[in-house]
Design a protein around this nucleic acid. Structure first.
Lengths: 345, 345
DNA sequence: TTGTAAGCGTTATCAA
DNA sequence: TTGATAACGCTTACAA
């Protein structure tokens, strides 16, 4: 009847070895103060003679606490998601939570499956960056959920103040004496954050009584598609269209801004005086471009830290009740930071 | 005496609801074939009425299997580590293993602590990219370990054939009619992989009876330090030193190659005819540089896939014995791929 | 300060 | 095809 032992050293083994009960061994780890100095030493020795290794799985089951947070991100190649993921993982020493990361959730059904799986691991909270599942559904998961830069009606969230980012970009270009204001966007980026950026930009430009133009490039998973499309736009819609005017180009992502910059550099050997460029995101690449790129930076460290505070807070309060249910979600909005480098004065 | 219930729906609840025993419920999930068609339907209904959610923690404890692999990477900002991490996480749909990722292991003691923690979660295997802990120690962990691009005497590993990469770089520059061969390295990169690259390059250049020069730039965590240092080297050691010669610069990382390229572009408005540049790694940035960068590419997808095959293989065989012990580690060496873009002909 | 025993939610063995 | 029952390794009342 006795099932085959797994071969690992357990509290029972230590108990036998030392003559204590396994309760005392447990106490040694969880309430060392309640074990006498002397006995603590005895146990310590036993631990290393037996080469004991803590078993968190058993502990998780017994305590109903895993110290694991689930993370769902849309994809792996986007620099913003990577940065967020990396910063989150980096909070381990600060908060002690580990992350179970699942990515590639372009499909709604797959994302649902991922969530189910994470839930099965009894994650204590979920951080979600993808947008396929509505927040109404996420709110019913029974654990705290914090979204980052996504639709957030029924869940807590942190986002960048995209509207303010657009305003900042417009002001900088205005200070650079631009005459023509060009918004370079991709059709796929018609989600909420991009919309706010454009609105802030356009409203501000209109306030300055300056003309603006929308230009859309094509995009798919291939980088080359974007390059071809943007270069075509530069050639046909920009260079020829505004003679004698100083053009301020607001690119909704750093990667597209860099393509624009590279094109101009290859064509003219420099950034011509009648062009000013500003990107969005402050990706690592923006700093490393031929000419360090001016950009509206998301304050990612703050985004991440805020997300963790909110989530941990909700985890803490949720301990008091059984199943967590979101009463009033909190929405933190982080201001962007204008980073003026060399593609503007 | 009864401890407060956690509030979650268990097999017992489903058993009560349906009139079966919890054994049958377990069988429904694990050996559906052994439960009668009719009863399966009954259970299925109960599952959704009760809104059951699988508990992997309990399952892990009972089965002694977690489906989790540990991953330790040195840091979060290096693009190579990011890529590997992302590709590994992306294997989830293929292999069903989740990853617990810990990073920032510059310190040996912290890395040891991380390993202990991962072991506590009863990870089934470990993939390790950092180099602070010797493989002799890793081999004694009791679980399969696969290293990627690191010292690997006593553990299995996958690495790029760095020597061949150096050879490929030298040949390409030779085909580009270079007269002077310059190796641009950073002193911190004196680990094994970089050494192989340099050796392969130098031996090949010597075979061509061409002169070569070593140049080292400074580096710390600040990007600006690298830029300043490289620009100083360009100005003082390269531009002035080889008049009339065509210089082939082999940069041991793409990021330094891009700094060189940007400097030349900003100085001359183009890549002058008497310069040829080749980097190493094929990072995303290399493709997106002003002039798409020629580089020796690590075949990261293959590295990752090979690492997983080896690890899963060892996990499989280790099931047969209790504690895993490495008899004969396997060392896979993946050839690099020369990617000739626009900084060479 | 320590021990007993029940419990966490599964799986596995054995017998029916 | 099903059910009792003992694991898995730890925590936690409660009693001593």
């Amino acid at each position: 009847m006795a099932r085959e032992r797994t071969g690992e050293v357990t509290f029972q083994d230590i108990a036998n070895f030392t003559g204590f009960s396994k309760t005392t061994i447990s106490r040694y780890f969880n309430h060392p103060g309640t074990v006498s100095e002397e006995n603590r030493k005895t146990i310590e020795k036993a631990l290393s003679s037996l080469n004991y290794s803590e078993n968190r799985v058993a502990k998780m089951l017994a305590k109903g606490k895993t110290d694991i947070i689930g993370l769902i991100i849309p994809n792996l190649y986007n620099g913003f998601y990577q940065t967020i993921q990396d910063l989150l993982i980096g909070t381990y020493d600060k908060y002690g939570y580990k992350f179970l990361v699942l990515s590639g959730s372009d499909s709604e059904s797959r994302e649902r499956r991922y969530i189910r799986e994470l839930l099965a691991y009894r994650i204590e909270g979920l951080i979600i960056l993808s947008h396929t599942i509505p927040s109404s559904e996420l709110a019913g998961l029974g654990i705290p959920v914090v979204g980052i830069e996504r639709e957030d009606r029924y869940i807590s969230s942190v986002s960048t103040d995209n509207h303010m980012g657009g305003v900042q970009a417009a002001k900088l270009l205005y200070e650079n004496d631009c005459d023509e204001y060009i918004i370079l966007n991709s059709p796929t980026a018609t989600d909420v954050p991009a919309f706010g950026r454009v609105m802030g930009f356009v409203e501000t430009v209109q306030g300055f009584k300056k003309p603006h133009t929308f230009l859309e490039y094509e995009m798919d998973s291939e980088y080359e598609t974007m390059v071809d499309s943007i270069e075509k736009i530069m050639k046909n819609k920009i260079i020829s269209s505004f003679p004698g005017k100083r053009k301020g180009i607001f690119c909704l992502s750093d990667s597209s801004a860099i393509v624009v910059l590279n094109y101009l550099f290859r064509t003219y050997g420099c950034l011509p005086e009648d062009y000013r460029i500003i990107g969005f995101d402050n990706t690592p690449a923006s700093k490393e471009a031929v000419l360090p790129l001016s950009t509206v930076g998301q304050q990612v460290e703050i985004l991440v830290d805020t997300a963790m505070s909110i989530l941990l807070d909700e985890i803490r309060t949720s301990k008091e009740y059984g199943r967590f249910s979101q009463k009033d979600p909190v929405h933190a909005v982080i201001p962007p930071r204008l980073i003026s480098r060399e593609t503007t004065d």
